[in-house]
């Protein structure tokens, strides 16, 4: 697992401890703690996991096991504008694959990667439940419906 070495600032460590404490430092709350931590830091580098493990009194291996098990958690920082392409079945039969190919081609990244300038990251997600708008792409909080491969460059232009 590739990861970037980060040094946490004092206040970041304090914030993490505070998050753990808000869940009573209970091991059973690990997933909630991770959710909250990722919300705060944007991703979960090893250094963050080490602190959580210590605070909840469980092994780092266990925290790492949970982080890597669930697709929602990431150990790599996302781009400034995270792009997600829905690859649920409804979007798939309405051509999500071609839309994904176009994003990959233009941004020159693979799924799960971030562009070198840190601007865009590309990921797939399973069904946001807006199947009436298939195929669906989300950039940050904004959802784009009925996206065609042609429309990809127009979406990207909005963020230039």
């Amino acid at each position: 697992m590739s990861h970037i070495k980060v040094e946490l600032k004092k206040e970041q460590v304090a914030k993490l401890k505070e998050i753990c404490k808000s869940f009573n430092n209970e091991a059973g709350e690990l997933i909630n703690v991770l959710h909250k931590s990722q919300e705060t830091f944007g991703y979960l580098p090893a250094e963050v996991q080490e602190i959580i493990a210590k605070e909840l009194n469980i092994s780092v291996a266990k925290v790492y096991g949970v982080v890597t098990f669930y697709s929602f958690f990431t150990m790599l920082p996302k781009g400034q504008h995270p792009i997600s392409i829905c690859t649920g079945t409804a979007c798939y039969v309405r051509g999500a694959e071609k839309v994904l190919d176009e994003f990959k081609r233009i941004l020159e990244v693979k799924v799960g990667e971030t562009t070198p300038d840190g601007k865009f990251s590309l990921s797939c997600l399973r069904c946001v439940g807006a199947c009436g708008l298939a195929p669906v792409v989300s950039v940050g909080e904004k959802i784009y419906g009925r996206v065609s491969p042609d429309g990809v460059k127009d979406i990207l232009k909005e963020y230039e």
């Binding site: 997933i31 909630n32 959710h35 098990f69 669930y70 697709s71 958690f73």
Partner: peptide
Amino acid sequence: LRYGAGAF
């Protein structure tokens, strides 16, 4: 409430 984290 308990939250899932993306595992089918």
